[in-house]
Simulated scan of single mutants.
Amino acid sequence: MKSIEVKTILTGNHGTGMNVYRGCTHGCIYCDSRSACYHTPVPFEDIEVKKNAVELLDSALRSKRRKCMIGTGSMCDPYMPCEKTLKITRGCLEVIDRHGFGATVLTKSNLVLRDFDLLKKINSKTKAVLQMTLTTGDDGLCRKIEPNVCPTSERFRVLMEAKKESIPTVVWLTPFLPYINDTKENIMELLEMCAKASVRGIVIFGFGLTLRDGNREYFYKSLDEKFPGLKDRYINQFGTRYEVSRPESDSMYPMVRRFCMDNKILYRPDDTFAYLNRFEEKDVQLTLF
Rank of each mutant, 00 (worst) to 15 (best):
L106A: 14
T174M: 12
G208R: 02
T169E: 04
F207S: 00
W172V: 15
K221I: 02
P147K: 12
I202D: 01
P147A: 10
V105A: 04
R212N: 13
T126A: 14
R233C: 08
K196R: 07
D182A: 01
L177K: 06
L177D: 05
M188Q: 12
L130S: 10
E189Y: 02
P178Y: 03
K164N: 13
V171E: 00
V105G: 02
Y234C: 00
G214H: 06
T126F: 06
K108G: 08
S153C: 08
T183E: 14
V158C: 05
T169M: 06
V171T: 09
E161H: 13
P228S: 04
L159V: 00
V171M: 04
L134D: 07
E192Q: 14
I202S: 06
M132L: 14
S166W: 10
G140R: 12
M132T: 13
E146W: 03
K127W: 02
Y220D: 09
K120C: 08
E154G: 05
C194M: 11
L190D: 01
D232N: 14
D139T: 03
V170T: 01
N181M: 06
C150N: 11
R155P: 00
M193E: 13
G239I: 02
D182E: 02
S222G: 05
K127N: 10
G229C: 06
D213P: 05
D139Q: 01
R143C: 08
V112R: 07
T174N: 14
A197L: 01
D232L: 04
E165P: 05
G140F: 03
N110L: 14
L211V: 09
V170W: 04
V203W: 04
A195K: 15
D224A: 01
F205Y: 06
R216V: 04
A195D: 11
S124W: 09
Q131C: 15
L118P: 10
D139R: 05
E225H: 11
L141Y: 09
F116Q: 10
D117I: 05
R157F: 11
N215T: 01
F156V: 15
R212Y: 15
T107M: 09
P147F: 07
L119N: 03
Q131V: 13
F156R: 06
L190E: 04
K226S: 08
A197C: 01
